[in-house]
C-alpha cells in the first residue's frame, strides 16, 4: 500500500509509465456520470461515486488489477491488510478479479486529493463515508511494456 499526497506526488514517483499516466488521466477526468464505470485503454477501469458504492462487508483482494482510490470532496476511510494474514471468505473469481477475505486490518484515512494505491498482495475494504465522493481505478498489474492502446 502506498499513499501519495496528491496526484502530483503520484506523477513524480510513477509517472512516465503508460498505465500510471492513464491512472492520472482517470483521476483528473471530469464530465462523467457518477456511478458509471469507464475504461481507459486496456489499462484500467474507473468510476467516480460515493464511498457507499464501493463499500463491502469483507476485504477485497484483486490479483490482476490493483485498486487505486482518491477522495474527491472529503476524506475517505479504508481498511488494508496483507492477503497472507487474512482468511478467505470465498474463492477467487476470474470473472471479477476479486477475492473476499476477512480478518484484522488496519484502518487508514485518505485525505481529500490524496491517492491510495493498493498492491496486488493486499486486500482493501472501503468504509462508507456517506458524504465523500471518491474516484476508484482498477489498474493492470502488467509491467512497464504495455503495447495495447
Amino acid at each position: 500500500m502506498r499513499i501519495f499526497r496528491d496526484r502530483a506526488h503520484l506523477e513524480e514517483v510513477l509517472g512516465g509509465v503508460t498505465k500510471w499516466e492513464r491512472t492520472l488521466g482517470a483521476l483528473r477526468a471530469g464530465g462523467r456520470h457518477l456511478g458509471v464505470m469507464y475504461s481507459v485503454g486496456d489499462s484500467l477501469t474507473t468510476m467516480r461515486a460515493r464511498t457507499t458504492a464501493f463499500a463491502t462487508d469483507d476485504l477485497v483482494a484483486r490479483r490482476r488489477y490493483q485498486c487505486v482510490l482518491s477522495p474527491v470532496d472529503g476524506d475517505a476511510a479504508v481498511e488494508v491488510a496483507p492477503v497472507a494474514t487474512l482468511a478467505p471468505a470465498g474463492p477467487y473469481s476470474d470473472l471479477t478479479d476479486r477475492r473476499y477475505l476477512c480478518g484484522d486490518a488496519r484502518r487508514h484515512t485518505i485525505r481529500r486529493g490524496a491517492v491510495l494505491v493498493i498492491g496486488p498482495d493486499e486486500a482493501v475494504r472501503v468504509l462508507p463515508v456517506p458524504d465523500t465522493t471518491v474516484t476508484v481505478a482498477y489498474v493492470t498489474v502488467e509491467g512497464a511494456t504495455f503495447p495495447n492502446k
Partner: peptide, 19 residues
C-alpha cells in the same frame, strides 16, 4: 464500446453500466 477489455474489466463495466 471498447475493444480488448479484459474479463474482469467487462464485469466492472457491466456492473456499473453506462446509460
Amino acid at each position: 464500446s471498447t475493444m480488448y477489455s479484459r474479463v474482469s474489466q467487462m464485469n466492472d463495466l457491466g456492473e456499473h453500466p453506462h446509460p
